[in-house]
Design a binder for these strands. Structure first.
Lengths: 336, 336
DNA sequence: CTGAAAGCGCTAACAA
DNA sequence: TTGTTAGCGCTTTCAG
């Protein structure tokens, strides 16, 4: 592989001059610039990012921490992140933490060693210590799709309006005549779930419906959880006629449970999911769900981070994206 | 951030000695080793990978080229790749090429600049030029889930047995009494599709069934393709009673088409997919599909690559993983 | 067993 | 405008 010295020799200039044209410095005459460019071309030279990183401290790579890339929600986020990275000349290192704090810490350590320019974090429990420390160490960080209590810290946050998401989902069910609506959430340590619950409660109260605490359950975002909990709740004497689930996977579990118990969706049971992943279109019946614009969130988060890295922003922004309800065929009017 | 100099000073040794203990050189007495370790501990020092990469030429990071991480098939592969990377102390940079050769070339260029240690490529059309050149430039490469004509090149390949996959899928349908079986493949430039077709043909011939060329169609692996083509074929006068689709998404398209035309799966039409992604369990009816062990493929490919990088293997291996059929409820005996 | 010193490829003062 | 040179943080001879 050709080095900057080879180029300098060929163009009959110093390596400093070559470095200048590589970095688009104006302090180079048109003539020499051309000469250098020609040499670069001829040698098929391309600068070694590692070497320049050693002085410039910039590797043009970002770290993305997510629980699991095989989960379609995070895959969508990751796609948005990668799209933005590519658009701005960055690359991204993906890390699956499996919701484990030790893995998260280990990845953060590893990536710091590698001098990455910043972190996009979508894995944190609320006010996770690893993340707080990272932010306090002055590394550029953006929190994606999660929340953090960023009072005295410089950190960007990109989330969607989870309170409203919970609200419109529940309101939709109420408008269809449902009164007994179960609410299956993810882990309470992930703050979006508290927000979605808030939206649920708001809609219920607004409609003057009484909230039955036994119908509000925290879980783990998985199909299995939706399945088991739904069976439990559907076995209740006074069973719910509708479910609001905090993600599509859980909602799918509910649909499976209903079918398992010989009930039909949406005739007997209405179900609303959350995320609008590709699964929502595929499941039968197609799922009514809250659409989060995951790709856009990933893209925007990355844009913010890169601006921050380039010094074009000083961080500390909080972006809340809109959500909307995609009505498909898993919800219908209740007759009873 | 502490440097090797800080550690040296604190431990009262030279930086060379610190470097030796970092790299587990035996040429250090137990006593000094302990002293250095203590200093490292106290300073919370962790070596700068970028700096060491400059001399060692190893960044402990790999590049993964896939068409689209939002596609569950590739997400599963990527998960396997990342798992293995983590187990062996590597990180991975993910690149989405969207099946575009120009993007692929650009990513390869970028990652070479970053001195990554090797590539895992799962995007290539058969004998793709970018990839051939990369391999010939002597960079460690492993081809994952695709094929390549590696005659005179040192490259590892990890695939699954696609001929057999096509065979067992088709055989299953034949065993259920089907005679008119459509075969919806992905792009012919991706060799796995040719192999799956081979398996299909083999099963048909073995059973003495005549192959109707109009029932064999190449497409693009998408839901939409399965939907459109199925509608077309189901409108034929002498329509197929079963479909073998070369991935789950296409199979799902077929199921949607059947429903759209008022037909019931599997009563009227049987469908077999390929990949056994999570979608297969979620769709209704749950999809009978060929299971490819994507994670394992990703894991093995990465293991091979790392062995090659470490000099523990000289490359040129070809691993063919077994496939098996997961029978769910989208296929049934034909009565007519 | 340990240390001095020469790089790895590039950037960024500082001089000229 | 251009060149010289001192690092960036670490590895690796080569001496001792």
């Amino acid at each position: 592989m050709a080095t900057i010295y080879d180029v300098a020799k060929r163009a009959k200039v110093s390596i400093a001059t070559v470095s200048r044209v590589l970095n688009n410095s104006p302090l180079v005459s048109e003539k020499t610039r051309e000469r250098v460019k020609k040499a670069i071309e001829e040698l098929n030279y391309s600068p070694n990012v590692i070497a320049s990183a050693l002085t410039k401290k910039s590797t043009l790579t970002l770290g993305l921490l997510i629980p699991d890339i095989a989960n379609p929600f995070f895959a969508e986020l990751a796609r948005g992140v990668e799209d933005a990275s590519a658009d701005f000349g960055f690359n991204i290192i993906i890390c699956n933490t499996d919701y484990r704090s030790d893995k998260e810490a280990e990845y953060i350590r590893l990536l710091k060693q590698k001098s990455i320019d910043g972190f996009i974090i979508s894995t944190a429990y609320y006010n996770d210590e690893n993340v707080i420390n990272l932010i306090k160490s002055n590394t550029p960080v953006v929190i994606l799709g999660r929340d953090i209590d960023g009072e005295d810290m410089v950190v960007d946050v990109v989330v969607s309006d989870n309170v409203n998401g919970g609200y419109i989902a529940t309101k939709h069910l109420i408008d269809l005549g449902h009164k007994n609506i179960a609410c299956l959430l993810g882990p309470p340590q992930v703050k979006v779930n508290l927000d979605r619950e808030k939206g649920y409660l708001k809609a219920m109260e607004e409609a003057g419906l009484k909230v039955r605490p036994e119908l509000i359950v925290f879980g783990d975002f998985k199909v299995e959880f939706g399945f088991k909990k739904a069976i439990e709740l559907l076995s209740l004497e006074h069973r719910p006629t509708a479910f609001f689930a905090a993600n599509d996977l859980t909602a799918i579990g509910v649909i499976k449970a209903a079918r398992f118990m010989g009930l039909e969706v949406p005739r007997d049971i209405s179900v609303v999911g959350y995320d609008n992943t590709m699964l929502a279109e595929i499941v039968d019946p197609p799922l009514t769900t809250v659409n989060q614009q995951m790709r856009k969130m990933g893209y925007m988060a990355t844009e913010f981070l890169i601006k921050r890295i380039k010094g074009e922003s000083s961080g500390g922004q909080r972006i809340v994206l809109d959500v909307d309800l995609v009505v498909r065929r898993s919800t219908s009017r209740v007759y009873n």
